[in-house]
C-alpha cells in the first residue's frame, strides 16, 4: 500500500476534477442536493420542527421569566393562584391516612403549565432548559460516535488482516466493558480532583465528560455494521478494479467506500440521538455531567420515574420532546439522503 501514496499531487487534482465533471454534469453537487431537498416537503416540515424546538429551548429564560417560576430552585412550600384560588405547589394528601405529598399536576396555564416535579419546580421551564443541555450533549456525542465509528469501521473492513483483528477486538472490549463502573468510579474520583486530559480540565459537572462517555459507548454498534458493509464493498468489482489500477487506498476509501456507507450513517443519526439522550440521563444519575439543580431531558425523565403513578406528565413531557426531535431528524435525514443520492429519481 505504501507505494500508492507516492502519486503526485497534480495527478490527484486532475483526477478529482475529471471525476467531478463526469459524475455531476451541469450544477455543483451540493447545489443539486440542496435544490432537491428544498422540493422535499416532508423534509422541510421536519426542518421547521427542529428549528422550532431549538428556538423554544433557546428562549427558555424568557418563558421562565414570563411564568415567574424558578426552574432550578426547590419550591416546597409555595403556592400559586389558579382560577382565583390559591393552590399549593406541593399538595399533602388529605384523604385516608394523609400519607404522601403530591406535586401540582398540569395546570395548562402559564404557571406550571405541565405541573411540578418532586421539588416543586416548574416542569415546563425545566423542559426548555433541559432541551439545551440534552440536544448539546446528544448532538456532540452523536457526531463523535459517527466520526470515530466510521474511521474504525472503514479502516478495519478495508484493510482487513491484523488491522481488522486488533480494531475488532478493541471494539469487543469496549462493547463488553461495564461503562457504568467507569462512570461510578469517575463520579467519585472527580469529587475532589480535576482530571486533565491534554488541554481539557474535567470536573464532575463539565459536560465534556458525558459527551465523551456517551459518544464512545455506541461506537462498536455503528462501527461493526460499517465494517461489515466495507468488507462486502472491498470485494465488489469497482473496488477491486480500483485497487488493481493502483489507485491509492485513501482515495478509494474517500471516493468509493465512504459514499456507500453514508446511508447507514444517516440512519444512525436519529437512533443515536435517542439512545444518547437516554444514556446521558443514566450518567447524570451517577453524578456525572448534568448536576442538580440543572436539567436535561434525561434527568427530567429520571425525576419523573419516581412520579409515574401520580404525575405521569413529568416523565411523559420530555419523552414526547425526544420523540418529536428524533422523528424530525429522521425525516430530515431521509430527505438529505435522497437529495445526495444521484440514483434517486427526482420526484
Amino acid at each position: 500500500m505504501v507505494d500508492t501514496f507516492s502519486e503526485t499531487l497534480s495527478e490527484q487534482a486532475a483526477a478529482d476534477i475529471a471525476a467531478e465533471v463526469i459524475s455531476r454534469p451541469g450544477r455543483g453537487p451540493w447545489a443539486t442536493a440542496f435544490r432537491r431537498l428544498r422540493r422535499d416537503r416532508a423534509a422541510m416540515v421536519a426542518l421547521g420542527v427542529l428549528v422550532l424546538i431549538l428556538v423554544a429551548c433557546a428562549l427558555a429564560p424568557l418563558y421562565a421569566h414570563l411564568a415567574g417560576t424558578d426552574p432550578f430552585r426547590p419550591n416546597l412550600d409555595g403556592s400559586i393562584t389558579l382560577n382565583g384560588q390559591s393552590v399549593d405547589v406541593m399538595q399533602p394528601s388529605t384523604t385516608g391516612l394523609g400519607l404522601g405529598v403530591t406535586p401540582i399536576g398540569p395546570t395548562w396555564t402559564l404557571h406550571y403549565l405541565l405541573g411540578a416535579d418532586s421539588q416543586g419546580r416548574d416542569v415546563a421551564a425545566r423542559l426548555l432548559y433541559g432541551g439545551q443541555t440534552s440536544l448539546f450533549i446528544a448532538g456532540m456525542a452523536t457526531v463523535i460516535c459517527l466520526v470515530l465509528a466510521t474511521l474504525v469501521g472503514v479502516v478495519a473492513g478495508f484493510f482487513g488482516g491484523w488491522v481488522d483483528t486488533v480494531l475488532s477486538r478493541i471494539l469487543d472490549v469496549l462493547w463488553a466493558f461495564p461503562i457504568y463502573l467507569l462512570a461510578i468510579s469517575l463520579s467519585i474520583v472527580l469529587l475532589n480532583t480535576t482530571l486533565h486530559i491534554g488541554p481539557i480540565a474535567l470536573t464532575s459537572d463539565s459536560l465534556a465528560l458525558p459527551i465523551a462517555i456517551v459518544g464512545v459507548i455506541y461506537i462498536p454498534y455503528v462501527a461493526r455494521p460499517i465494517r461489515g458493509q466495507v468488507l462486502t464493498l472491498r470485494h465488489s468489482e469497482f473496488v477491486l478494479a480500483a485497487v488493481g489500477l493502483g489507485i491509492p487506498a485513501w482515495r478509494i476509501l474517500w471516493r468509493d467506500i465512504l459514499p456507500n456507507v453514508t446511508t447507514t450513517l444517516i440512519v444512525f443519526v436519529p437512533i443515536l440521538m435517542a439512545l444518547n439522550i437516554v444514556t446521558e440521563s443514566a450518567l447524570s444519575f451517577l453524578a456525572i455531567g448534568v448536576q442538580p439543580p440543572n436539567a436535561s431531558w434525561g434527568t427530567i425523565i429520571g425525576d419523573g420515574e419516581a412520579l409515574l403513578y401520580t404525575r405521569p406528565m413529568v416523565a411523559l413531557a420530555p419523552g414526547l420532546a425526544i420523540v418529536l426531535t428524533v422523528l424530525a431528524l429522521n425525516v430530515l435525514g431521509d430527505g438529505v439522503r435522497d437529495a445526495l443520492d444521484p440514483r434517486t429519481k427526482i420526484r
Binding site: P270, I301, E305, L308, A315, G319, I322, V326, L327
Partner: peptide
C-alpha cells in the same frame, strides 16, 4: 419505530 427507540426501557417497563 422511532417512538420505540425513544422510549427508555425503564419507563416502558414501569408503565
Amino acid at each position: 419505530a422511532l417512538i420505540g427507540i425513544s422510549m427508555p426501557v425503564f419507563w416502558l417497563a414501569s408503565m
